[in-house]
């Protein structure tokens, strides 16, 4: 009897850990950082981190959605870059065009990914791998390989603005996107379907869910968010470039995985992804602050991804 009770307690501890393990890691990281260098806790530095993670954070949220359905979207980087190019490229046509253009491009690119994946039953990895090359090529063609300099004055607040003179507007956008998507996931049928499709596409179909349509929308949403991130990027750097998003898909996948989203689909949260991106952001900030070259940063990011996946693996085993 005693034994059973003990088991129950340890299981509670286990679930507690699964839920908050990454948050704990984040807190530990935070404390370590502030012990190591006093610079870390300077408000300026913290706000820097908030800004640095905002763009990739928004991309990661889109990626999380896609991964929840059991898919993957490798084309977010080039979509972001194309979005950034469009902001700079469309500035002559007015700020509405420069703002809406990238969003429409991102949405359409994503919807196209989703359509090919569902209608032709091709693996998302392959489709978006191809799309990655296609959108990079489109961007290079559009820009003729050169950066397009300058973004509309009125849009620059998006990337450069500071609320109350201190808080980067980017960070506010990131948090807003996170909250909106989290609410959609949690409280709407669409959100529920996203988890259902990732958990069991066949059962979802037989439950009357239009699996294809939801999947297409999810990829559309991922593209839209990448396009939106492109706007922020372009207005932040005041330039559009075809290779701005290089490597971004990997960071976004890493953030989602560190945050506990299962690549098998069906489980994960936006909150987790936000934690994941914070872990990555804080770690690379710390390593920059203490003057460690990027080689070590890469080793660390890799380690964190692997450890996070190991934690997940333990969690998976337990629940079966």
């Amino acid at each position: 009897m005693e034994e059973i009770n003990n088991k129950k307690n340890s299981m509670h501890l286990g679930t507690y850990f699964e839920k908050y393990g990454m948050l704990l890691l984040l807190l530990v990281l935070f404390v370590i950082c502030s012990l190591i260098t006093p610079v870390f806790l300077k408000p300026g530095n913290l706000l820097n981190i908030a800004r640095q993670i905002s763009i990739i954070g928004i991309v990661s949220i889109g990626m999380t959605l896609v991964i929840l359905t059991g898919g993957i979207d490798l084309s977010v980087g080039p979509i972001l870059a194309c979005g950034a190019l469009l902001v700079a490229g469309l500035k002559e046509y007015g700020i509405v065009a420069a703002f809406v253009g990238p969003l429409i491009f991102g949405l359409c690119a994503g919807l196209l990914n989703g359509t090919v994946i569902t209608k032709f039953k091709v693996q998302p990895f392959i489709v978006t791998l191809g799309a990655m090359s296609i959108y990079t090529g489109l961007g290079l063609t559009y820009s003729k390989g050169h950066p397009i300099i300058g973004t509309p004055e009125m849009l620059r607040f998006i990337g450069q603005g500071k609320v109350f003179g201190v808080i980067p507007f980017q960070a506010i956008l990131f948090i807003s996107v996170a909250i909106i998507i989290a609410i959609i996931l949690k409280y709407t049928p669409f959100g529920r379907y996203t988890y259902a499709i990732g958990g069991n596409p066949e059962a979802s179909k037989l439950s009357g869910i239009n699996v294809d349509r939801v999947t297409i929308y999810i990829y559309g949403l991922s593209g839209l968010l990448a396009g939106f991130a492109g706007i922020i990027m372009a207005t932040h750097l005041n330039v559009g470039e075809a290779r701005l998003g290089t490597g971004m898909e990997m960071d976004a996948i890493a953030a989602a995985v560190i945050g506990g989203t299962s690549l098998k689909g069906g489980s994960g949260t936006i909150f987790g992804t936000v934690i994941g991106i914070l872990v990555i952001g804080i770690l690379s900030n710390l390593l920059n602050l203490i003057n460690v070259p990027s080689y070590a940063q890469m080793i660390f990011k890799g380690l964190i991804i692997v450890v996070a996946t190991v934690l997940q693996g333990l969690h998976d085993k337990k629940s079966v």
């Binding site: 260098t37 610079v39 820097n48 640095q52 290089t246 490597g247 900030n285 920059n288 990027s294 940063q297």
Partner: peptide, 19 residues
């Protein structure tokens, strides 16, 4: 260093400014 990404290079500059 920027690990060949403008975004990361900018972040690195910011981190150095913080110090």
């Amino acid at each position: 260093d920027g690990q060949n990404s403008v975004v990361k290079q900018v972040a690195g500059i910011e981190d150095m400014l913080s110090q």
